[in-house]
Every structure is written in C-alpha cells, then in structure tokens.
Amino acid sequence: MKVAVITFPGSNCDSDAISVMRVMLGLDTKAVWHKEARLPDQVRLVIIPGGFSYGDALRSGAIARFSPIMADIKRFADAGGLVIGICNGFQILLESGLLPGAMLQNASQKFVCRMVQVEAVSNTTPFTSDYQRHEWLRIPVAHHEGRYHADEETYRQLQRDDRIAFRYGCRDNPNGSLGDVAGIVNAQRNVLGMMPHPERAVESLLGSDDGLRLFRSAVRFAKSREG
C-alpha cells in the first residue's frame, strides 16, 4: 500500500507526517502537490497535514478546499479510503464538507502550542483501535483556530453515533471547543479530523509517543482491506 501526504502552499507539517510514515513505519509515502488532479495509484491512506494553507486567508482551509486534489480525495473517501486531517487538515475537511461542523478562533484569541491531555473516546474507528476506550494520551496542539463548533443536532448525532474520537481533558481544553471535542470521524468512520498533532507524538524523546498507535492502527486497517 501507499500513503499520500498532501502539500498545499503554506502546509508546514507535511515533512513531519512523511517522516513518520516513511522513516518510522517504513511505508511507501508520496508527497502529493495540491494541483495534482489524482492521487497516485495504490494509495490507501491520505494525510492532510497541518500548516497555514493559503496563509489562512478568509478562514483556515477555506481556499484549500478548492484545490484540484480535493475532488479526488472526496472520491477516495466516498469509496471508503482512509483520510486523516490534522490541524489545518481538519479545518480543510470541515470546509470541504467531509466532516460536519466548523472551526472558530481559540477562546483565548491567541495561538497556543503545548502538550495536552487527550482522551481516546471512541476506539471503534480504523484510527483508534489500538487505544483503550477512555485512555489518556499526551499529544501536542499548535493552532490559532481550533475551537470546534457544531449545531446542537450535529453534536448530539456525533455523540449518539460514537463519532467523537478524541476529547481534551476538561481542565486542559486549549481552545474552548464544544464538549471539549478534539477530533471526530465521519458517519462512515473512514475520515478522521483532529486538532492535536499525533505526528508530533511518535517518540518519547520528543515528549510522547502516544500518537504512533494512531498511524499503526490506520495502516493495519488499510492493509487488511487490501487483502
């Protein structure tokens, strides 16, 4: 299988994601430029990395959703392909309608970068099956617009369908998100968006390796479907 990491102008976590997939997990990982019309063949996992696509002009992710590659990512996701959007990648997934809800500026109105406590709420997704339900993880955040918001009905549905993948510890919510939401999956459970950066939590030397299992879990799932 192959992994695709998308680079938009302004992406800046692409090389970190590539390093995890290629160097740490030994996977054939392609850097894909946003102007490409199609994902490479045999891609089974797409990562939309963090950064400031288009300089966050208008709203985070608001312009990146129009990039040519996004149409193919949508097709890929509709066919059940695994997509992980991290930070700006999450924002892009919201803007493109692959995930429900919207992102607001942090309650502090300031950029925040720190290690936070994150609860693996649901472990019935392809991305979180290596975590215990309600396991506490340490994963860093780094964002200015990370306050997840959704209307009441959408939020109830997310809860009802066990689609909230991650929550911040209630006293460690860095942005004031609704219900301390840190990450969600779509109804088909194959698209994950999250604000914390699991690709920055893959080595205890750098503070935590709790994020590594997320990628391992996704890769195992993708490989199993490949037969």
């Binding site: 800046n12 925040v112 970068c113 780094a142």
Partner: peptide
C-alpha cells in the same frame, strides 16, 4: 512561548 509553535518539525528535544 505557548504562543510560539515550538514542536513543528518533530525535532525539538
């Protein structure tokens, strides 16, 4: 310093 991204590039020991 919490307003600065200090962890991008996954090299900050």
């Amino acid at each position: 310093f919490e307003q600065y991204d200090w962890s991008v590039r996954t090299s900050t020991v």
